[in-house]
Design a protein around this nucleic acid. Structure first.
Lengths: 338, 338
DNA sequence: GTGAAAGCGCTAACAT
DNA sequence: ATGTTAGCGCTTTCAC
């Protein structure tokens, strides 16, 4: 067992107060001789501070609780990593729990974190959930940050991906390659992601004077099959598009399959761009041009926002939307940048 | 702020001891009237026990530390979930940290967990790392479980996937479909996974009297390209195989590409089975028959092993190897079971 | 420059 | 059936 301050104090022939002062290296003056003696002793006795005791005494645990809606999500890992990396340099540990897309588990976890007296809570929420006041009120004045949803009333506590901008980048890229008839395969309409990416698509269609044919907008459900079907519908149009922007990589994959099955070639006959940069985007044939989700950066930003709250720094309205990045591969016909 | 026991005691006109006894519902007898009064008061005042104080007093935190080598690994999520689910029902919270494949971070995290006085540590290690005594000694008598590696001296503290068995299932499946010349594309030779899967392959080749031609064993590096190259080599053989078992899904994908590019058809001309059941296995064309890693089950088993240690239950040599499951899809030519 | 002592919120042994 | 009390290991105010 690691010794306590008392044991070190005894061994050094000083009081616990002195030992504490030395080991914490706070400004308090301590004679150099005693300091080095204590340091040596602590080292030699293998002292490890008891953070539980310190937490009780200081009423601050230097822990933040992270609730992840689904740890196996393709984005969760990088986001958590971003969070941890940023929090770590600030001296905070993170305790992570997987809510597995169950709202009750979210509430339970918040309660558990409160009991553990974490200094703040971060909620990574990437699925549809009625975020009424319940969550917020149950957190009750603790520093809190929400990732992936923006709630107007607590705007400075939210971080979300810049989906509108991401979609703009994708469509602009296709437009710059000379495409005028660019189709969009949307995700489930009630998803925020789908809505924002649609807006981004429409932005560019309007600004760049692309064909604004409503039949170029197809509805998918995020799945491969729906991308396949949507593309078949697009190919059957009197005037088919020359490029397709799909709201996620899975539907883009379905689009590739549909184009192939129609005896056509990607990107020669049809340029395709996806969204998300899932791992398989680089492995499929042709490899997929796509918009990379800023998962890691969102984690970092969320951590920073939380630290701001903990420190009560006045730095509100920090970047709420984090921009993604266009990864150019083969499916769009441009020169790869990946 | 949530009240303390003292405040509840004052409000109820009893001592803290009584309040503690009621709220913890330990066997200690308390008059029904006082009990209900205290319960009501606690509820109404919004009492949440301070787990930091309890941890200090009981010298037990009901926290276990989990060190994940790489959170973004395709297997980490499910394993962590299995861990958390099992530990939660036993009343334990988990604090997870991502080591990001950095050995120093592992040591640092162990130290941090020790300072936080966690009741046990679980290390999820899926990458090559010289696990000498350093890690073990630095954990120093705390309950500990290692996932993905088996160290003989602490066999009952280790959980690993049943790779040998998994490979046997894959190859047996191909043999049962009538294949006699089955090739194996190995992963990097110094990986335990590669070694064990090779053994499983050889087991079946020998037992089932399959062609034991050494040229049927090709060396890959886990990447898509290496699977492609290995398959080209196999196709160039005087007597090419009729089936390929690849040590992971990425190389299996490369194999599919190579077969296609040779103008042949999967599974008609070449049956292919992968390993891991990565998410894309169900999306590629043809969809990939593969062995599913028992990630969740490994997490559960590891948690159980840790709980055994914490409770000092005598239940050693609990299932150290967790079997995977064969997911039959299109690439092997059998009827799908997925 | 150092020490004494209070106390964070809780549990549990020991009274009564 | 209930109360008193002594810590768990640490930080920090107040003395000297």
């Amino acid at each position: 067992m690691t010794p306590t301050l008392v044991e070190i104090a005894d061994a050094a022939g000083v009081s616990v107060a002195t030992v504490s002062r030395v080991l914490n290296d706070n400004g308090h003056p301590v004679a150099e001789r005693t300091r080095s003696r204590i340091l040596a002793l602590a080292q030699q006795m293998g002292y490890e501070p008891n953070l539980v005791a310190r937490g009780l005494r200081k009423q601050q645990t230097y822990m933040v609780g992270v609730i992840v809606d689904r740890i196996s999500s393709p984005f969760a890992g990088a986001t958590v990593q971003g969070l941890q990396d940023r929090l770590k340099v600030a001296g905070y540990s993170t305790s992570m729990v997987n809510a597995n897309r169950d709202a009750d588990t979210v509430f339970e976890s918040i309660k558990e974190f409160s009991r553990r007296r974490v200094d703040g809570i971060i909620l990574l929420n990437s699925w549809l959930h009625p975020y009424n006041d319940d969550v917020l009120s149950s957190i009750d004045r603790k520093p809190f940050v929400l990732i992936n949803r923006i709630i107007e009333e607590i705007r400075h506590q939210c971080v979300a991906p810049g989906d509108e901008l991401g979609a703009q980048m994708a469509v602009s890229h296709l437009a710059n390659l000379g495409h005028r008839r660019i189709a969009y395969i949307n995700g489930l309409a009630d998803w925020l992601e789908a809505q924002n990416r649609l807006i981004g698509y429409q932005d560019v269609v309007n600004e760049s004077n692309l064909d604004a044919d409503p039949s170029l907008i197809q509805q998918g459900d995020w799945g491969v099959e729906s991308g396949y079907a949507a593309t078949q519908a697009l190919l059957a149009l009197d005037q088919p598009p020359t490029a397709i922007f799909a709201a996620n990589d899975l539907m883009a994959l379905g689009a590739i399959y549909a184009v192939h099955d129609a005896g056509l070639h990607v990107p020669h006959d049809m340029a395709i761009v996806g969204y998300d940069d899932r791992d398989f985007a680089g492995w499929v044939r042709p490899s997929l041009t796509t918009v990379c989700m800023p998962s890691y950066a969102m984690g970092e930003a969320a951590a920073q926002l939380l630290l701001n709250q903990i420190a009560e720094t006045q730095d509100p309205l920090n970047a709420t939307h984090i921009p993604g990045r266009l990864i150019v591969r083969e499916s769009c016909g441009a020169k790869s940048n990946a």
